[in-house]
Write a protein that binds this DNA or RNA. Structure first.
Length: 323
DNA sequence: CAGTCGTGGAC
DNA sequence: TGTCCAAGACT
């Protein structure tokens, strides 16, 4: 266990002394909920957090950032080996920035969504050019990098730099939906109401906020999971609105499932797999073998080219981009 | 804002 | 061989 071990503050992060009566008419409900959640969740985190390489001090901000890119929509178990190889090969942003983007795509392997590799490479170039080779510390600076959205900017600022940000990923959204909202699942898309809840629950103290962010996310990943949740191991099950309501089934619109077989995504994946394995430019005829239907096949290949994942050469062959 | 974008493991 | 899901970003 290598989670940060700073003590949890024993006094409320803001406001009056413990046990002091609330001022009538002033809404303190959110604060009260928050304070009763922070200590048990953070204590649980410090006892049960996984020992992941990007949580070790030597990972640095670059390691945190690389892991966040790889973890976007991808399970930890599949990220681990690729992360280790990646950090061995490119221990600093400038090391990656020197390489052609195609090398990043190749090293990405079968993690999926290979545009993330392209964006991570682009972010490394931007960091090298604009930030002297160091991952920027500001949320706005992070947000300006390719491949970094609201979640990843907050995650890097919080996990790498200990800042106070609401870190709203799918795990945290589910945890909050259950504890606060009394729902099995959050809405399909992140709502303003969810952001408001996340901000209201954020500890006032910076260091506590950072551990709360990591802890609430880990709770969603290990205990408060989408299926087969284990309320018996949850440190705040006694305060969970969903559990207290008898764990009602999901009400709203069905969570739209991802179809895959037969889609352009599948064809793109097959095409790019060939390009990744190839050491020399690949003739069109070889690519043609990955998919029967010519119209969809051509559309998929065009898509890869326009995304910058494949480079067409004058002789009709294709390769990963050298730029 | 709804669609698009990979991959593989669990059931 | 099907469904659901996994630390989202971008258009």
């Amino acid at each position: 266990m290598t989670a940060p071990t700073k003590p949890v503050p024993t006094s409320p992060p803001s406001g009056s002394a413990p046990g002091a009566p609330r001022t009538p008419g002033v809404p303190h409900a959110a604060e009260a909920i928050a304070e009763s959640l922070h200590i048990p969740v953070i204590a649980w985190f410090e006892a049960h957090a996984r020992d992941l390489p990007w949580r070790r001090p030597e990972a640095g901000a670059w390691g945190v950032m690389v892991s966040e890119f790889m973890l976007q929509q991808t399970p930890v178990s599949r990220v681990l080996p690729v992360y280790e190889q990646w950090m061995d090969r490119w221990p600093r942003p400038a090391d990656l920035a020197k390489e052609p983007s195609g090398e990043a795509v190749r090293a990405w392997g079968r993690l999926g969504y290979p545009r993330r590799a392209l964006r991570l490479h682009g972010a490394a170039v931007a960091i090298t050019e604009r930030h002297g080779g160091d991952v920027p510390t500001g949320h706005a600076q992070l947000l300006a990098l390719p491949g970094i959205g609201e979640y990843t900017a907050a995650a890097v600022a919080s996990f790498a730099y200990g800042q106070r940000h609401a870190v709203l990923d799918t795990n945290v959204r589910r945890v909050f939906a259950r504890i606060v909202g009394g729902n099995r699942y959050p809405p399909n898309a992140t709502t303003a109401a969810e952001r408001k809840v996340a901000r209201a629950l954020l500890p006032a103290d910076e260091s506590t906020a950072a551990r709360w962010a990591a802890g609430s996310m880990e709770l969603g990943a290990l205990v408060c999971t989408a299926k087969n949740e284990d309320c018996g191991r949850c440190p705040v099950s006694n305060q969970c609105a969903w559990r207290l309501a008898g764990k009602p089934e999901h009400q709203g619109p069905p969570r739209r499932g991802q179809t895959y077989a037969g889609t352009d995504r599948q064809v793109r994946g097959k095409l790019l797999a060939v390009l990744r394995e190839a050491v020399a430019p690949v003739p069109q005829a070889v690519l043609d073998r990955v998919w029967e239907e010519p119209v969809q096949r051509a559309r998929a290949l065009d898509g890869l080219v326009s995304d910058g994942l494949a480079e067409p050469l004058a002789d009709g062959t294709y390769r990963l981009p050298l730029t």
